[in-house]
Design a protein around this nucleic acid. Sequence first.
DNA 1: GACGGGTTACTCGGATAGAGATTGTCCGAGTGCATTTGG
DNA 2: CCAAATGCACTCGGACAATCTCTATCCGAGTAACCCGTC
Lengths: 161, 161
Amino acid sequence: MRTGKGVEWAVHTLLNLAWLGDGEPVPTARLAAVHDLSASYLNKQLQQLVKAGLLESVPGARGGFRLARPLEAVSMLDVVLAVEGDDPLFRCAEIRRCGTIGERVPAGGFSRPCAVNTAMGRAELAWRKALAAQSLADVRAEAEAHAPAVGSYVRGGFGRD
Amino acid sequence: MRTGKGVEWAVHTLLNLAWLGDGEPVPTARLAAVHDLSASYLNKQLQQLVKAGLLESVPGARGGFRLARPLEAVSMLDVVLAVEGDDPLFRCAEIRRCGTIGERVPAGGFSRPCAVNTAMGRAELAWRKALAAQSLADVRAEAEAHAPAVGSYVRGGFGRD
DNA sequence: GACGGGTTACTCGGATAGAGATTGTCCGAGTGCATTTGG
DNA sequence: CCAAATGCACTCGGACAATCTCTATCCGAGTAACCCGTC
């Protein structure tokens, strides 16, 4: 049980687009090259971000992807849900209703939700809240606090120095 | 990205053993039958719980599994880690070091941890804390609050009514 | 020189294979219980 | 009748497939830029 690498790819790509600054669209091939990623697979992730409204896609020559919103308006949760989907981490299969135990419970005995599911749901809610509390602008600020020149490194990696 | 069903199986099984009350070992086949689960696959999960010190296994005839600790001393996190392993939800591949951007960063530029990884780590920590804050005794109490007769249903499902 | 049409090259987008993890199944090693046999 | 040895049935434990998700790749549809001929 671990998040796919698409999340990491998506976050770094969104940050890179922000560091580039200008609203010019950037094609997938270039976005992938700066981190040595599979361009086609990155494209698949970016399509998810477009569906979620985090990116805009520009077709045709000189096309590509550009940010649809400022980083302040995008939370880490937005990215995770866009890439991974909004399925719950824990899916209750309601096994309490099955087998010799479930058969013994009278009708209406399962009107309340499964306590196991509730407990796991509380933890997942804490996870989501922690993700929602951090915007991409926060992550960018933290990265720049660690390495103030990161913006110029990125622009240089894109051949714009 | 979702937790395996082994977690659900393990939690319900631990609760069932507690509701049985006596410290008698219960074989996998019986534990699986009460919820219509695959006995062999459940056995695999229970072995993980033994390794983690949550269960004791008794070999031979009339053997099986029994609780190694009271439910109060077992948190939901203990169960999740025992079944799923303690790998982080988000594994940072350090893609920031790769490609044309990474090449531009001078030596020592990556001494600080990746901000993306840090942000995801904070959320995972919140998740783990929420899991650790809930003991199996709490879950049991919640289930009994919903359906006070659940203990007798369980004992009945095991053929001990 | 300006405009319009056609061509070209480039990009996204979704459909198509491969790898890895999860889920499920099977059989062997080991252990305790029951039976049997001798005292 | 009691005790010890033997055989047996039952259980765990790990090794072996099947299924599904994730990862990666490829090619077609569509669009904007570019070039060329014409007015």
